[in-house]
């Protein structure tokens, strides 16, 4: 457990229109634990005019995937928190491009150009929420989900020709892999890395796995002690059954909108 780490992002934020309760946890998967590697997932949120939450999964095959994930999450949150929501798709593209530019001149980027971006490869799934409207942005696997009274909207994983292949924001043609999904009046929002998607959705991704999503949603909604809530989420994602079924890193960010 020492090699696992818990990132607790539990906070109550208000403005005149919306209140958000945010809980997240990251668990290092068995694959990385067995190789003495840290969790490659990173997630962050920030509130300005918009609520922005981003989750990125550094590619296991990329030497600095974890750094790529961290830089991307931080830059997207910083830029999009106060971005104009009416043109949010362009703002998201600009923010991703900015993260790419930062990594192009990163000291660990050997060639100091775009060809060196591959070593920072990471997927990204995130949300920008403004008043009662939201938009998911997504490259690669992982997933996003918004719950409503009696339905859900999802941004589903996208893989390459093989299930083990996916898309990264560091790829040359990343814009063709960038997907947007709009939704409104969410009761709750979930962002998750690929270590969690198989638990959260039915195999064909046409429906959510109620036995996974709803207990988590109900528990986190009811639990007033945010430390206890985030610890319980961490423990749940760390369960031996979960680790055995899916050895990938597992990050889940839950946002309650009220």
């Amino acid at each position: 457990m020492l090699r696992n780490f818990l990132r607790t992002l539990a906070i109550g934020m208000t403005n005149s229109r919306r209140r958000f309760k945010i809980i997240s946890a990251s668990v290092t998967g068995l694959t990385h634990l067995n190789n003495n590697l840290p969790c490659q997932d990173y997630c962050r949120h920030r509130r300005g005019k918009n609520l922005v939450a981003v989750l990125s999964d550094g590619a296991g095959s990329a030497k600095y995937g974890r750094i790529g994930a961290r830089v991307l999450c931080n830059k997207l949150c910083d830029i999009l928190a106060d971005a104009d929501f009416s043109g949010i798709e362009d703002e998201i593209k600009k923010a991703i491009e900015t993260a790419r530019q930062i990594l192009t001149i990163h000291r660990l980027n050997g060639p100091q150009n775009e060809t060196g971006l591959d070593s920072f490869a990471a997927t990204v799934v995130g949300v920008v929420y403004n008043h009662n409207k939201g938009i998911f942005f997504h490259i690669g696997d992982g997933a996003a989900l918004s719950l409503h009274d009696d339905y859900f909207r999802a941004s589903r994983p996208e893989n390459g020709c093989c299930s083990c292949e996916t898309f990264f924001f560091t790829q040359k043609y990343w814009k063709s892999s960038l997907r947007f999904t709009r939704f409104a009046n969410a009761e709750a929002i979930f962002l998750m890395s690929d270590g969690v998607t198989s638990f959260a959705f039915q195999p064909d991704f046409q429906d959510i796995e109620h036995r996974f999503i709803l207990p988590i949603h109900n528990f986190l909604s009811a639990e007033k002690n945010t430390l206890k809530a985030s610890r319980a989420l961490f423990n749940t994602l760390s369960a031996s059954k979960a680790q055995h079924l899916n050895p990938d890193d597992k990050t889940l960010m839950w946002i309650k909108v009220s």
Binding site: S198, F199, Q202, P203, E209, R211, F212, P215, I216, F219, L220, N225, L227, K228, R231, A232, L233, N235, T236, A239, K241, A242, L245, N246
Partner: peptide, 21 residues
């Protein structure tokens, strides 16, 4: 400290990974 904090899990969560053969 809450003595149950370290071990408490979210109840009734089921892991239904269907990827295995």
């Amino acid at each position: 400290a809450d003595t149950n904090l370290d071990n408490e899990m979210i109840p009734y969560v089921e892991f239904a990974d269907n990827a295995n053969e």
